[in-house]
Design a protein around this nucleic acid. Structure first.
Lengths: 245, 245
DNA sequence: ACTTGTCAACTAACATGTTAGAATGTTATT
DNA sequence: AATAACATTCTAACATGTTAGTTGACAAGT
């Protein structure tokens, strides 16, 4: 009854290039493998091959697994084993809700106390987005998009907010990686960013929130589609894979 | 240069009464000691006395400390030691911001899709609050207050939201325990809860958010006062204790 | 007095051995 | 054939030994 859901530890990146303690390095390496689907949902995460591949003992690997469990990327079954967690629409919806909550409050606060210097940084970022679209650089645009939201959170003065937002939307982002970029979407995204920017510049908190809400509201419907197209990545894992090859 | 900031492991509760793995039990016991200030900010958290007191080896204690570190209750100094974290106004302000973000989105969503059954539960809770105030039961009121907010989050259908809210406001709550209940405050609180309830019943999302914001806005000013009254609990720990005995 | 360097003591981080519970396959029983 | 008892084999959880980096005290030099 083994669905070939064993991990291939050779897919783990070399931890010697990562900073921090061994525990942190191992955590980082496994996390990357999970997010890139090298370790697919449902895969059995066994310590022995990981230790062998990375050349470390079980202690730092246990440490890393504990971190992954607290992030929700793996499920530890007591006294039995550890498995890469399936995509869960309920978790993803919840993550999207939490992220929206944080982004809305962020937009409101930044609209309230934006400085001129901060405004210029946003302006520059938007110009960069324009350029990257014209250049057809989708990967670059993705990063600029992330940076736009990161800048807003940075401007709140709450230094932990950005990390927090990342952790709540981790499941959402894991699923988002699977979304193929649709042609017109980048241009729309830019327009939505512009609307947020303009509301903030006018110190209009509610308008900034509304614009942000419209922007974020675009994502979930596309992920809901994904769940129908590739059900084997989601729980319940009993669903058979017939549609997609 | 030791400011008598050594822990007294005998203050740890017996872990035999707690459920879960040893790691979870140890975590729970230490967490309680920190939140009750039995382990004061700045205290050196040494493994040996903890192991001795609880009758366990270092492994589950290390596990517990890792959890505490991820919650921000302790600071691990690599290769050196672990200390109970000081109260940090920046962390507390940030926690309050995050909690507000979650509570506002929660209030809005619940106002949107409240069922009659849910309305009745809120109604019952409010009646209980009234009774407890008349009864002079402050501790009971505190719990009913928590339950009120818990109910709202439960009604969103997002099962992890409540845990999340707890974790973000952990630092806020740790400080809140030190606030002495001021006489008129409970009655005011009840009024604020009522305003939230009524806005929600009228399906008025923005009004529910506004009422929630007024409610939550009462807390931080009192904590800011606390920071001035008892500076030795906060960083920086160099501040001398002269005012309070 | 004020650095600077050495050393001893302490601790987190890591490695490894041990225990006990869960899953799975096998056999015995009906 | 279905099922219940059993045994085998996993693994997480736990215990304990080892390593290496940090800290602080004290001594020596300025």
């Amino acid at each position: 009854m083994n669905y070939a859901d064993e991990i291939d530890a050779s897919l783990l990146s070399d931890i010697r290039t990562i900073k921090g303690s061994l525990g942190q390095r191992v955590h980082e390496a496994i996390k990357t493998a999970i997010l890139t689907l090298d370790f697919p949902p449902g895969a059995n995460l066994r310590k022995a091959p990981i230790c062998e591949r990375l050349g470390v003992s079980r202690a730092p690997v246990s440490d890393a697994i504990a971190r992954l469990a607290s992030e929700g990327l793996v499920d530890v079954i007591p006294q039995s084993g550890t498995r890469v967690s399936y995509f869960s629409m309920s978790e993803i919806r919840e993550g999207a809700f939490l992220r929206e909550a944080l982004e809305l409050s962020t937009a409101s606060k930044v609209a309230h106390d934006l400085t001129e210097e901060q405004r210029q940084k946003l302006r520059r970022n938007l110009r960069m987005q324009e350029f990257l679209i014209q250049d057809g650089d989708n990967v670059g645009f993705y990063k600029a998009d992330e940076e736009f939201h990161g800048l807003l959170m940075e401007f709140t003065g709450y230094v932990r907010l950005l990390n927090f937002a990342h952790s709540v939307s981790l499941q959402v982002n894991r699923a988002r990686i699977l979304l193929l970029p649709t042609p017109g979407r980048v241009a729309e995204t830019l327009e939505e960013h512009r609307a947020i920017y303009e509301a903030i510049c006018e110190r209009d908190g509610p308008a900034a929130q509304a614009a942000m809400q419209r922007h974020l509201g675009q994502l979930m419907p596309r992920i809901e589609e994904l769940a129908l197209e590739r059900p084997h990545l989601f729980n319940n894992p009993m669903a058979t894979t017939k549609q997609v090859g």
